[in-house]
């Protein structure tokens, strides 16, 4: 599903990626682990079309996204990719339900019933009309997951999704991702520096200094 070839990313003052090659198959859950500054978030951003590579290519489902223009990428993202970040980026003046519906708006049409069901699936059926400031960190992150998955993407990219959560909420989120992954069958690429979180994936890529130094299968 994802083919990354010779990926390099150079910032003004640093080299984030020094030539990354990897393949990720459909329905895989791949964890990418590594210390801060190893290039894992940069890699995730480029795979998600949120950033451009300096060199190399990223192909998803046969489409080379690294060659797409900004608006083409936006359309590609809305059709194929869901994002969950470490910080619960939610529109502060919208309720949990409206935040999910906003993603529907950008995708196609707003369907309140479907949005409610998505929030119910992540256990927030009772918090539909609460604003982000009225939700706990774990609940906010679950809204983000519901929003990421509302348009049935093929690929879920999660950048430290449990980085700001305690152990209980971390487990809750991972259980949720596991269930959704099993039921919906989408591909997950999850970036973390926490071995516990990384261990939930089927495959683990370890990065260091802009390169993948280890590629291992955790749960065959």
């Amino acid at each position: 599903m994802i083919k990354v070839r010779g990926l390099k990313k150079v910032y003004q003052t640093a080299i984030a990626l020094r030539g990354v090659d990897m393949d990720i198959s459909q329905n895989e859950w791949v964890s990418i682990m590594g210390p801060s500054g190893s290039g894992k978030s940069t890699l995730l951003n480029i795979i998600g079309g949120l950033d451009y590579p300096s060199e190399g290519s990223v192909t998803i489902d046969g489409k080379e996204i690294s060659a797409m223009k900004e608006d083409e990428l936006a359309v590609f993202r809305r059709e194929n990719i869901g994002f969950v970040f470490q910080q619960s980026y939610l529109i502060p003046y919208l309720t949990a339900l409206e935040n999910v519906m906003l993603a529907q708006y950008f995708h196609s049409i707003v369907d309140e019933k479907e949005a409610k069901e998505a929030l119910e699936r992540v256990g927030l059926g009772h918090r539909l009309h609460h604003r982000p400031s009225e939700l706990s960190g774990g609940e906010q992150q679950r809204v983000c997951i519901a929003r990421a998955l509302i348009n049935s993407p093929k690929l879920l990219l999660a950048d430290e999704p449990t980085g700001n959560l305690d152990r209980v909420n971390t487990r809750l989120i991972l259980e949720l991702l596991k269930d959704l992954h099993r039921d919906e069958g989408f591909t997950i690429v999850l970036v973390t520096h926490d071995p516990y979180v990384a261990g939930w994936g089927k495959r683990l890529l370890t990065m260091e200094d802009g390169r993948i130094i280890k590629d291992e299968v955790l749960h065959p």
Binding site: G48, D71, Y89
Partner: peptide
Amino acid sequence: VDIALMKTMGGTSR
């Protein structure tokens, strides 16, 4: 951040 978020959700510039 809202704008970046809208872009990640697939919102075009327009």
